[in-house]
Amino acid sequence: MASSTPTAERQVTGGGISTRRKLVNQVMLTLTGVASVLVLIPLLLIFYYLLAAGAGSINLDFFTQLPAPVGEPGGGMANAIVGTLSLVLLAGAIGIPIAVGAGVFLAEAGRSPLGNFVRFIADVMNGIPSIVTGIFVWAWIVVWMGRFSLLAGSIALAVMLIPMVTRTTEEMVRLVPRELREGGVALGFTRWRTTLGIVLPAAKSGILTGILVALARIAGETAPLLFTAFGNPFWEWRLNEPISALPLLIYQYAISPYDEWHRLAWAASLVLIGMVLAISLMARFIIKNPYRDR
């Protein structure tokens, strides 16, 4: 630095740069602020519409009664709520063990040709339109069983869930620091013991979050259920019978010509969003409590 530069002059120059920087900073901050408000607008609008159009139709009957026949007032969607829960839970039971296993494999041994292949397939599967998944499961399961069923619907949802959870599990397991793995190996643990006892617990909250996000996502899927779970106006519990689901009912009611059904479709949408929101909040809660032990 030139030692002869007068202090005053330097301060002036410095001040100029700093003013410009502050300005740019302000502009960028404003732009990003506007962008985040724009992100919020559709969400708020959806909430507003759902509340305005659907809240009025939500009452105790909605959660306890079967759908009423056309023309009869009242009725509810109890069977569809239970149906959606059953479909999502069964899809999780089928898909999560497979997906977590595959994700761990990809993270721990993923550089092999098999690993690259599985990763590629998972990415492709993530991009498959859900209606195609529905047709695929129809062709293989529904046609084979000769009927629409809870099982077929769950398999369709599981097919959607598996690639999502596989990839998030892989990412989360990869995030576990190498030092932690080495800590286990240095104690004389075998590789599977290190993975199961140390790496997986360390990645636990991330994996759980990924699972919940995927469950929330499949809870709202309609297309894969159209030709698999099919829908059912009555209570149904059996694996091999068609079952009702909220997205199916929303679809069916929304395209109907009846005003009463339109109102019920709004109400069902509100309940569905509420369920998804609840799952997402659980995910947030888990993120905030990482590494809780025992």
């Binding site: 620091p177 030092e179 932690l180 800590g183 286990g184 240095a186 004389g188 617990p201 360390a202 990482p290």
Partner: peptide
């Protein structure tokens, strides 16, 4: 595995298990 049991190791970055 036996070898590593008889040789303890402490790393640069502390790595307690979660």
């Amino acid at each position: 595995v036996q070898l590593r049991k008889s040789v303890g190791m402490v790393f640069q970055k502390s790595n307690p298990f979660p």
